[in-house]
Design a protein around this nucleic acid. Structure first.
Lengths: 278, 278
DNA sequence: ATGTTTTAAAGGTCTAACGATTCGCGGGAG
DNA sequence: CTCCCGCGAATCGTTAGACCTTTAAAACAT
């Protein structure tokens, strides 16, 4: 292999205005942008400005082709860009077309998860950082949840405990764990919190915890959760914060041990393998 | 206009596995997915799994065409999807090709900003929620910054104050404001914090504050900032938290007044207009 | 009325070029 | 020998046109 590695400039694109005509060199010019980028930028502008409202239909691909003076392929590539940013959805058939998407929080979480996952590989995003963010977010969230939770939230929280010991697989245990914490941040009544918390949770699991925690760990988690739930049931903000804080402190050592072990023993898991496909 | 509105199902796509073969109906089948989605999904998998590392080159479009048994158009649409998720970058010319992108935190912020902006329109994401998240994030961040800040951070923070009164335009004032807060969360030493804080800041400005704040507001901001800076210079975690908390409480009324005013007086600004293009 | 067939609109896919950009190499000028 | 220029190849960017598939609604038959 002849060093493929790093090509030329990074050429950000994606979410930038073509402008950049500000100060600096008096000969500042805009870099050439591919047609599909220009089309995508303009359409995104229209959507973000609210010129086309959620649920409304965009012109057909043929019409866009005419409007922009570009070929259908170019227009379609622009539409793929927008659709992968969840700004539009497409439907085939007679009443079909391209529609401005109603934003769904779940999409944002998915994107964040992919991004954090990559950042945790190459940039300096460590397990400590992620746990720190969990503390920053979930401790206040637990406090708010104690005040704002509904009966439905409490019901879900009570259902997050393993029913029969040893029946639950690791995956199952983690599922309950995830649901417990996500429900709490949802009960805090602020949409932003679950959107951010969920991807951090996922990354912590897939890249760091990796189902390697011992049963004792899950025992402790279960006990902690009971205490947290009790505080939230009581509606005691301070107590809920304290319990959540304690809980997150408790599980930090396990995450760090597993992380260190994974680093020490190479060839353990998934990332950075030299693929040898068929 | 014959009611364009909401087409059929939302058809999430984007970041899902084709699987879904689990429990539920015994006749569970996978929905038909367009070719470009399948190609994008597979390539994304390869990248996220680390089978292809950052900076490495993917096969050329012609090779992918052969590998997937799809036309070049289809492959290219898949590549556009991945590039808009900042997983790849493309370079033209001889040594060119498609390269796995090194993730940059800034991209994540851009995506979050667009997403939060849309959510603040149609979903229940209010100015109160955003301010609440700022408190949750920035109060602990200020505390951490007081402990972890370097001299460089302090230098930047000191440069964020308006030099001459009335010289600074609203945009300029906000720029300094933004830089001050972002620098603090950066000084906290946790990459995740600025990534999340920046888009929240931007959305608060563009959708709620809209440069409508009176000079008295900016006076107060400036005074608060001085107090916060002093606490961070002192290295006093508790003090820094307290000052930041107070600051955010101080500016809440202004945001809310402007928000209410904008709602009360229609036709004020940008979003939700019935477009009438040429 | 109700069920079936036809039709037309729209996105999805394919093919086959040609254009534009960039790197590296080789030849000519100094 | 060195430097510069230009040429060619590799690769993405763009176009044009055709055909397929899906879907809703209109037309038709029962």
């Amino acid at each position: 292999m002849p060093r493929p590695q790093n090509p030329r400039a990074s050429r950000s694109a994606a979410l930038e205005q073509p402008a950049a005509s500000g100060k600096g060199s008096p000969l500042a010019v805009a870099k050439v942008r591919p047609g599909y980028q220009q089309v995508a930028d303009q359409l995104r502008e229209l959507i973000l400005e609210g010129r086309i409202n959620a649920g409304e239909r965009l012109p057909t691909e043929s019409e866009l082709t005419e409007m922009f003076g570009a070929s259908r392929s170019t227009v379609r590539e622009a539409l793929r860009i927008l659709s992968s940013q969840n700004l539009i959805v497409t439907a085939r058939g007679a009443g079909g077309g391209t529609f401005v998407s109603r934003p769904e929080p779940r999409y944002v979480s998915d994107i964040l998860e992919a991004s954090f996952g990559l950042l945790s590989d190459s940039e300096h995003l460590t397990v400590d950082h992620l746990l720190e963010v969990r503390e920053i977010l979930e401790v206040p969230a637990a406090g708010l949840a104690a005040v704002r939770r509904t009966e439905e939230h409490l019901a879900v929280l009570r259902s997050c405990f393993p029913v029969r010991a040893e029946d639950a697989s690791r995956a199952h245990l983690f599922e309950g764990n995830l649901r417990f914490h996500i429900t709490i941040v949802e009960a805090a009544g602020n949409m932003v919190l679950p959107v951010i918390t969920r991807p951090i949770f996922s990354v912590l699991r897939t890249r760091f915890l990796r189902d390697a925690a011992p049963p004792a760990f899950w025992k402790r988690v279960s006990r902690d959760h009971r205490d947290i739930l009790a505080a939230i049931e009581d509606g005691s903000e301070g107590d809920a914060r304290a319990q959540m804080d304690r809980h997150l402190e408790n599980l930090r050592p396990t995450y760090e041990e597993i992380d260190v072990a994974a680093r020490g023993a190479p060839g353990a898991q998934g990332r950075a393998r030299a693929g040898k496909e068929s």
